[in-house]
Amino acid sequence: MNHAAFLLPAWLFVIGLYGIITSRHFVHLIGCLTVVQSSTYVLLLSVGYRTGAGAPIFADHPVGSPAVDPVVQALVLTDIVVGATVTALLLALALQVHKRKGTLDPQRLRPLRP
């Protein structure tokens, strides 16, 4: 496989983490989290990619013709569902925190600290 296919997920991973580490707003932080998440999706899809192969659906082309790996796509699909749940939960938590504290800056929200 082409090495560039590994560089893109690595870049997405690192830039997303940089965003999380330096974030001053939880909604921004949650956005960065989804960037990290997409890095894993890009990685998985490029693992299953085959040059010149079609989608793994054999309705319109003959069985046995080259297709990309459907297993990784199933993995990605499963994780997208979980990822959407977690993002929704995080945003709901952030909303509730904002109602109570009036801020979403991680540096000022410190659990159990005066």
């Binding site: 932080l29 977690v86 938590l93 509730q96 925190v97 929200l109 410190r110 659990p111």
Partner: peptide, 11 residues
């Protein structure tokens, strides 16, 4: 406090 703890935990 529970919400902030949950945020850190989740992230």
């Amino acid at each position: 406090s529970a919400l902030e703890g949950a945020l850190n935990f989740t992230v």
